[in-house]
Write a protein that binds this DNA or RNA. Structure first.
Lengths: 231, 231
DNA sequence: CACGTCATGGAACGTCATTCCATACTTGCC
DNA sequence: GGCAAGTATGGAATGACGTTCCATGACGTG
């Protein structure tokens, strides 16, 4: 009855871990503690396991971050309720806004969006955009250029805006950041920066999301001009 | 005459280091070894100094990378010869291409471009764009929106394209990467990815730089429409 | 020539990603 | 029903890295 098995590990929990469980835990940690918050120490503590177990399911940290980022793109697609009957244009707008707002909530993912081009959920995103484009009367040979233009605009501008929120720090809002940036602009030398100092004020009451939509509409205008009326 | 001063460091080299020297060395290391190539070990070896000396000039590694990225933006502005007489539109195009090609040569900088909005050279870039916009007949209150739209398009799309080149690895070209990506697209299930599989072929003979220019021209078209003729 | 400030070089520290291995559960085969 | 091969786990050990700390030296100022 002497307890000599202190050293012995407890019964192994087989099948408790999986790729998805690990990725979801990574997303949670990144959401909670920011881009620096994902460490294998925290990850193994939360999953109540060891590093080796995690490495059985993922190749390395880079891959884990990439999968976590793709997961975020996936949630942006999931939260979108299909609205049959509305125009392709309107649905592209809704899709774009969903991605924009989702990345805004997971700002750590922004810098990595460029690296997930070939990941499953991101491919679904491109497929969705392409499907909507295909519903228009746009000539087939133009579809590639237009769909990828929208895709690139969506992912890269969204990433840029979200990145600005990251620089602001976790507790400050995007508005705080803009005000701070506007102050820095206004403080520049008006001699060498005549333009920037003059428009610094505009930056104060400027809305990233509005501007994102404005740019998207510009592309959609171009699309409409090429298509004529939509079906 | 006994050599007891083995322990003594050699004569100090005062004033040999400076912020600029450190940043330039960082840029060189990043160019040579990629985004992982900047370590304080390599940096101090190359500069023949210790970590403390570097930390006297730089707050931490993040700041160093940010300054290195801004430095790259600076070289994009420097390599641009002023061409008086040409239209603002043509000069914006030339400026955009210079940034695009420079970031293509320093692909490690791409993910950090979003973080340098308030850095000196990046401010110069926005100032240059704004100055050209101001030369047009665009109403003053529209200048902010258009200038920042061009700036955001330029920096974020360029960063995205350069990021794709990073994923390709140091020894493969951007074309290799595109071909590889096209193969992955083509290998997807045609049932769930009807659009992507169909346009996979187009991706093979697609030119990022061309598409970048196409998108920029779209914005410039919008600008011209709002301005009427340029002065 | 003394004294405070600026600057340097490198040792030491703590954190982190990653590797390695001993263990145990599961499946398939005889 | 047992034995081997593959699958999965937990944690100790390793090495690389960013950062801090401190002893040392050079310069400017009185």
């Amino acid at each position: 009855m002497t307890c000599q098995d202190e050293v012995m590990p407890p019964a192994r929990n087989r099948g408790r871990l999986s790729r998805d469980v690990v990725v979801n835990a990574a997303v949670d940690l990144l959401d909670e503690h920011g881009s620096r918050g994902l460490t294998f120490k925290l990850l193994t503590e939360r999953l109540q396991t060891g590093a080796g177990a995690v490495y059985w399911h993922v190749a390395n940290k880079d891959e884990l971050v990439t999968m976590a980022t793709d997961q975020v793109i996936g949630t942006a697609l999931e939260r979108l309720s299909p609205e049959p009957g509305t125009s392709p244009e309107a649905r592209i707008r809704a899709l774009a806004l969903s991605v924009y707002d989702t990345l805004d909530q997971h700002t750590w993912a922004a810098p990595h969006v460029v690296a997930v081009h070939t990941m499953p959920h991101t491919m679904r995103l491109l497929e969705r955009i392409g499907g909507m484009i295909a519903e228009t009367r746009l000539p087939v040979r133009r579809r590639f250029a237009v769909a990828t233009a929208i895709f690139i605009y969506l992912t890269s501008v969204t990433a840029q805006d979200a990145g600005r929120a990251v620089a602001a720090g976790p507790d400050s809002t995007r508005d705080d950041m803009l005000r701070h940036e506007a102050q820095q602009w206004a403080a520049l030398d008006p001699e060498t920066f005549p333009f920037v100092t003059r428009i610094a004020e505009d930056l104060g009451h400027h809305d990233d999301r509005d501007q994102f939509l404005t740019g998207l509409d510009l592309i959609l205008d171009g699309l409409r001009a090429q298509v004529g009326d939509l079906p």
